[in-house]
Amino acid sequence: MKIAFYGSSLVSAYWNGAATYYRGLLKALSALGYEITFFEPDVYDRQKNRDIDPPEWCKVVVYNATVDALENVARRAAHADIVVKASGVGFEDELLLNRVLHHARPDALTIFWDVDAPATLAEVRSTPEHPLRQALGKLDLVLTYGGGDPVVSAYRTLGARDCIPVYNALDPETHHPVEPNPAFQADLGFLGNRLPDRESRVEQFFLEPAVRAQTQHFLLGGSGWEDKAMAPNVRRIGHVSTRDHNAFNCTPKAVLNISRESMAANGFSPATRVFEAAGAGACLITDFWEGIELFLKPQEEVLVARDGQDVAAIMNELTRAQAREIGQRALARVLSEHTYDHRATEADKIFREYARMREAAE
């Protein structure tokens, strides 16, 4: 089957947290026999900051950020058996959804794939005439990369025929244990861009514990933190390329996951960082969110902190030997249950089931 996938970017993770998810899932779907074309707009300097070349397992079409170029790529939806419009494409999202649905064949399976459900739902709820709300009844299905029952119920209430989570996971070929890199030496590392929906939680779970644990070294990767006041034991290194994520995760004694406020509030939303860190065999500390136990066992495969005081206490007690044991257990768990091969099998089953339902209804 042919998939036309309209998303933010496959070849660049620059200001594009969904890249790892797209790459892992689409590569695994390709291995199952799907022929995939990924359409992405040239916006936000992503093409200038590519971190992978176009892969063999997916054709990538980059189009200019103009309405004419958008219409040209939307027409190509007519050649696909499955048409996917993702959230947060970055250029004329509502128009793109409209035109893709217009050009999709009547027998094609049409899907809205939400990679940031809390943000999307907040926007749709605040705008009764939002184009996505109007389009939900025309779509066959909504898929999300997180959110659990709260997100599923919300989408069904708004008019979606169905909503199914297909969670983040691990691609063992890209995220795996490597040798430590002295450039990332630290006791606790955190990797994340400065975002309004995350900053206060970074202060609570990372910057305040650094003040409490002055004898330990904290490493901060990500863009936007240059003018942020922080303790002298915090070292800022700016943007970290995806090619260095394994070393970033493997080198510190532990690494920290901090959910955005909306993700933590909804729960059941493991960030790609969770699986990247576990796949590298890192000892992961995460802020608490509902549903973490579905993915990793608290205190055995992941350490859970409810506030910054918990983070500081964990860091003061955690030895490197204990950290290695936790990381190895996490690695074994994700390899056995949470790879993109597992997720692609789920998605394939969903596609085929809903395609059969469409045929039966016609």
Rank of each mutant, 00 (worst) to 15 (best):
R75A: 12
A122K: 15
V234C: 04
P118H: 01
N49P: 03
L207T: 12
D45R: 14
N64S: 15
R23E: 12
I314S: 04
K27F: 03
F206V: 01
E40L: 01
R50M: 14
A323L: 12
E71L: 13
V334G: 03
S9V: 07
D348F: 11
P128M: 11
S241T: 09
Y44D: 13
K2R: 14
E290F: 11
A344N: 10
F38N: 02
R306F: 07
P196I: 10
K59L: 11
D348N: 15
I111Y: 00
E199A: 14
H79N: 13
D51K: 08
S153T: 10
T174G: 02
E123D: 13
A313C: 07
P209A: 02
P172N: 07
Y34T: 01
S30V: 05
V89W: 01
S30W: 03
E208L: 08
K48I: 10
P165E: 12
R201I: 08
T127S: 12
I164N: 02
A210W: 02
H342L: 06
H342I: 06
I3H: 00
K138T: 06
L188H: 01
V302S: 05
V152E: 05
F184Q: 06
A344W: 05
D341I: 08
D244Q: 10
L191Q: 02
T272R: 01
S30K: 04
E35Q: 15
T242Q: 13
D81C: 05
G221F: 00
A86V: 11
Q309R: 09
D348C: 12
N316T: 09
E179N: 11
D187S: 05
I237A: 02
P298L: 10
E173V: 10
M357L: 15
N49V: 05
L143P: 00
L219F: 12
E261W: 03
F91C: 15
L132E: 00
A169D: 01
L95A: 08
V62F: 12
R161F: 09
V11I: 10
A213D: 07
D53Q: 14
A86P: 03
L294Q: 13
D68H: 13
L121I: 14
D197H: 12
E208M: 13
A104H: 07
G17L: 11
S223F: 02
Q134C: 11
D227I: 06
E94G: 06
V311A: 04
W225Y: 10
G90R: 06
D93K: 07
P150D: 03
L294F: 08
Y145E: 06
T120P: 03
D197W: 08
H176S: 10
A282I: 02
G267I: 00
R320E: 15
A282V: 04
A135T: 03
A69Y: 04
V62G: 12
G159A: 10
K253F: 04
R273N: 05
I164Y: 04
G88A: 14
M230V: 08
G137W: 07
